[in-house]
Amino acid sequence: MNLFRWLNPSKRNVAPELTAEQQLRLRALSGPGVLDQRTLRQQRWVVVDVETSGLNLDRDEVLSIGAVVIEDGAIDFSQQFERTLMRTDHKLSPSVLIHGLGPSAIAAGSEPVDALLDFMTFVGDSPLLAFHAAFDEHMLGRALKESLGHRLLHPFLDVAHIAPFICPDANLRQAGLDDWTRFFGLHAEERHHASADALVTAELALILFSHARRVGIESPAQLEQGLAKWRRQQQVHSF
């Protein structure tokens, strides 16, 4: 570990040391695609969930990443991603009671640089979906910046916002993932596991895309624009 960074945890802009192979992989990563007028069905989406050492946005770390792909209007089970990231200085914390990732599992995980390169290669230029996406986006963005010096620029849409926007009559505006899965009759085999949470979020997203088409939202661009308008309305109503 870099001693200076350990003594000065706020100094996160120190350039990471990458091998020549890792540098090549980093340069080969796809840039973000644009949410355009192709149909929701035609768009490849990557649905992601992360488990972390805690909820502190500045200090806690990404411990595992799970992701599935929605393509051609269905979950493509041939395209799944799961990595536990090795954290040699990881200590037992209350979050273990939620996600079950103890120190031994973390110590046996993948080297963070390689795991994050694998993830971004898996993502390609696809937009990302998550439930309560701001947290996942921030934690992934910070991990990519600290480990790779890479800035996360991909569109990141929040299924927790899409749901009440598309289904206002459900009256579940502040609902969590469990609330929406119950509302639509979905069954989650397991929760608070990155891959399982990504899968149930993908199932929810597919239902919401179907409802979106019924109200005239046909494309990712229309969805993004509608969400932006909906968020502005929520801010006005909150005052």
Rank of each mutant, 00 (worst) to 15 (best):
I162R: 04
V68C: 09
Q225W: 05
D179H: 14
L3S: 04
L148H: 08
F165I: 04
L148I: 12
G149V: 15
D114I: 09
V47P: 00
R83E: 08
F184C: 15
D169P: 02
L85Q: 00
A74E: 12
V34Q: 15
A205K: 04
V200Y: 02
T39R: 12
D125M: 02
W230C: 02
A163Y: 07
G33T: 00
T121A: 14
E21H: 06
P16Y: 13
P164W: 08
A188M: 13
F77M: 04
L129C: 06
E82R: 07
H161L: 03
V123Y: 05
K145L: 11
G216W: 15
A134C: 01
P32A: 15
G66Y: 00
L223D: 03
P94E: 10
H187Y: 13
D169I: 11
S95V: 07
R59T: 03
L3P: 01
T52Q: 00
L18S: 12
M139V: 01
L223G: 05
A74G: 05
N171C: 11
Q22L: 14
T19A: 06
R214Q: 15
A205I: 04
F239A: 02
F122S: 02
V50E: 01
T201Y: 12
F156I: 10
Q225K: 08
L92G: 06
L227S: 10
S126W: 05
G102L: 08
P94Y: 14
L172G: 13
D60C: 06
K145I: 07
Q79I: 01
T52S: 00
I75N: 03
V34G: 13
S53P: 03
Q42N: 02
F135A: 04
E111I: 11
H138G: 06
L172K: 13
R191M: 10
M86L: 13
G226W: 02
H132E: 06
C167E: 06
E190R: 15
I162S: 10
G185F: 08
H138Y: 09
R213Q: 14
R182H: 14
F81E: 01
E71K: 03
F131Y: 04
R214D: 15
L85A: 02
L40S: 03
D60K: 05
E71C: 03
K11N: 07
C167L: 06
N2F: 10
E224W: 06
S95C: 03
T121N: 13
R151C: 13
R151A: 14
L152T: 14
S93V: 13
L26G: 04
T201K: 04
H154W: 11
E137S: 04
R173L: 04
L152W: 13
D178V: 03
A28W: 11
T201Q: 05
S238E: 05
D136Y: 00
S195E: 11
L140V: 07
D169Y: 09
I166M: 07
H99Q: 08
W45L: 01
E189W: 14
E82N: 09
P164K: 07
A67I: 00
A188I: 10
L223M: 08
V123G: 01
G176I: 03
F122D: 02
L117H: 09
K229E: 06
L148C: 12
L208I: 08
P164R: 11
H193S: 14
F183T: 01
L55E: 02
M139Q: 01
Q234A: 00
L18G: 11
T88Q: 15
V69Q: 07
L128D: 05
R191E: 12
A228G: 08
